[in-house]
Design a protein around this nucleic acid. Structure first.
Length: 152
DNA sequence: GCCAACGTTGGC
DNA sequence: GCCAACGTTGGC
């Protein structure tokens, strides 16, 4: 089993929005960065991800989600009406992938970016690095467990 | 709103 | 294949 961190802007799609979805599940579409896409393609059903709120008043980890469907073509790339439309993608040769994520658990205590930065054992996490923008990133088991412990 | 860091695009 | 210009991310 692998562990991940996924970012979302809560003004666009928050952890609470996920909780309110049918089956508490959402297709994680709109990822248009190759490294993030490649990470999603490595995700296995049953993997767990930290759900991180970015570009907001208090950035940080709010909860846990489970990967419930492995990578498949992101339909928004074919949709001319979509903001995520990509004219270079075709049904025969899709360029972008998505996975399905399902609400798993809300942390009892929000773990802010400030808290992550203040924890020496977490200073290798990508999310605490300056200028790090990758929206789907791997975390180690140790990092994952540490963040969960801080959220208890 | 500012701006640093990064990724992508496109001319050459 | 280089690299300048541009657009985006995201903390502050």
């Amino acid at each position: 089993m692998n562990y991940w961190l996924i970012k979302s802007e809560p003004d666009t799609f928050s952890f609470n929005d996920l909780k309110k979805r049918p089956k508490k599940t959402e297709g994680w579409d709109g990822v248009r960065n190759y490294q993030a896409r490649n990470n999603m393609r490595l995700m296995k059903k049953g993997d767990i991800a930290l759900f991180y709120h970015s570009s907001c008043k208090e950035p940080g980890v709010v909860g846990l989600v489970k990967i419930t469907k492995e990578a498949y073509p992101d339909p928004t790339q074919f949709d001319k009406q979509s903001d995520y439309y990509d004219p270079k993608a075709t049904e025969d040769n899709p360029r972008w992938s998505q996975v399905d994520i399902t609400f798993l658990k809300e942390l009892k205590h929000f773990v802010s970016l400030k808290d992550l930065k203040a924890t020496p054992s977490l200073n290798a996490m990508k999310v605490v690095q300056k200028g790090q923008r990758l929206s789907v990133q791997p975390v180690t088991k140790g990092e994952f467990e540490q963040v969960c412990a801080m959220g208890e």
